[in-house]
C-alpha cells in the first residue's frame, strides 16, 4: 500500500513535470504548425544554464529565471534565423530542428562533459510534508512542481482563450493575411509565441533539473516523453497535454516500479492502443 501511494505520488508529480515540458511543444505547434524536435535539447540546455547560474549565485530562483529566459531568447533566434522562412513547410522545419538538436547535443557535451548534474532545490521548499493517515512524508518540492504545472496550465488556458492577446494569436494563425490587414504585426505575434513556448521548456528544464539528474542522453529521453505525451493527448491541445502527461507519468511510474524491465514496453503498448482507436490522439483534431 505504501509503495502504491508513493508510486502514484511520484507519477503524479512527474506528470506535472511532463506537462511543463510538453506544453511549450504543443503551444508552438497548435498555434503555428511548427514542430520543434530540438525540444529535448532545449530542455537539457535549460538544465545546464540554470544549474550554472544557481551554482554561481547560490540562488535557485535566479537559476530558474536564467534558464527560462536564455531558452526564450535562444528559441526565438532559432525561429527567426532558421525556421521562419520555411514556416509553412512543416516537414522541412521539423528536420531543421533535428539538425539544431544534433548541434546542441554536441556543443553541450563539449562544454559540460558526460557527467550527470542535479541542481539543489531552494531551501524554502526543501522540506517534507506528512501524508495524513499513513505516518509517512513526501518531499514538498515535488508537490511544488505539480502546483507549478497546474498554475501554468490554467494560465495558458486563460491567456489563449480569454484575453485579447489570445484572440489575436488564434486569429493570426487562422488567417494571417486578414489579421495583418487589421494592422496587427503577425510576424511579431509569431515571435512572441515562439518565445513563450521556449520559455516554458526553459522553465521546465530548470525545474526538472532539480527533481531529476540530467546529462548526456537526457535530451533524447525528454524528447521521447514529450512526443509520447503530445501523441497520446493530441498535438496542439493544452488539455491533451494534461491528459497525456497524467497517463505517461502515472502509468510509466507504475511500470517502472513493478516491472522495471518492461517499463518502456508498457508505456508504448498504451500509446499504440490509444492510437489504434484514435490516430489523432485523445483530444486531437482530425488531421
Amino acid at each position: 500500500m505504501t509503495q502504491f501511494i508513493f508510486t502514484f505520488l511520484n507519477g503524479l508529480t512527474l506528470a506535472g513535470l511532463y506537462f511543463l515540458v510538453a506544453s511549450g511543444l504543443t503551444l508552438i505547434f497548435g498555434l503555428m504548425r511548427v514542430i520543434n524536435l530540438a525540444h529535448g535539447a532545449f530542455y537539457l540546455l535549460a538544465g545546464y544554464v540554470s544549474w550554472t547560474i544557481a551554482d554561481k549565485t547560490d540562488n535557485w530562483f535566479y537559476g530558474a529565471v536564467a534558464g527560462a529566459l536564455t531558452l526564450g531568447v535562444f528559441g526565438t533566434l532559432v525561429y527567426v534565423l532558421l525556421l521562419r522562412k520555411f514556416q509553412y513547410e512543416e516537414l522541412r522545419v521539423a528536420l531543421i530542428t533535428l539538425g539544431v538538436s544534433l548541434v546542441l547535443a554536441q556543443a553541450m557535451l563539449a562544454i559540460f562533459g558526460g557527467d550527470y548534474y542535479q541542481t539543489n532545490s531552494p531551501e524554502s521548499v526543501s522540506f517534507s510534508v506528512p501524508i495524513p493517515g499513513l505516518g509517512l512524508s513526501y518531499p514538498f518540492f515535488r508537490i511544488f512542481v505539480l502546483i507549478l504545472a497546474i498554475i501554468v496550465a490554467v494560465g495558458l488556458w486563460v491567456f489563449i482563450s480569454k484575453t485579447r492577446y489570445g484572440a489575436i494569436i488564434r486569429a493570426g494563425v487562422d488567417d494571417t493575411t486578414m489579421v495583418s490587414a487589421l494592422g496587427i504585426n503577425v510576424q511579431a505575434v509569431f515571435i512572441w509565441i515562439f518565445f513563450l513556448g521556449s520559455v516554458l521548456v526553459g522553465f521546465a528544464g530548470s525545474v526538472g533539473g532539480t527533481t531529476n539528474s540530467f546529462g548526456m542522453g537526457t535530451d533524447g529521453d525528454y524528447l521521447l516523453f514529450s512526443l509520447q505525451v503530445v501523441i497520446i493527448g493530441g498535438l496542439g491541445s493544452i488539455g491533451g497535454v494534461a491528459i497525456g502527461s497524467f497517463l505517461v507519468g502515472v502509468i510509466g511510474q507504475f511500470a517502472t516500479g513493478y516491472y522495471p524491465t518492461f517499463a518502456g514496453i508498457i508505456t508504448f503498448a498504451m500509446l499504440i492502443l490509444i492510437l489504434a482507436f484514435r490516430p489523432q490522439g485523445i483530444l486531437g483534431k482530425k488531421q
Partner: peptide
C-alpha cells in the same frame, strides 16, 4: 515523423 521517432527512442 514524430511517431516513428518515438518508436525508435522507445
Amino acid at each position: 515523423l514524430m511517431l516513428t521517432l518515438a518508436v525508435t527512442l522507445g
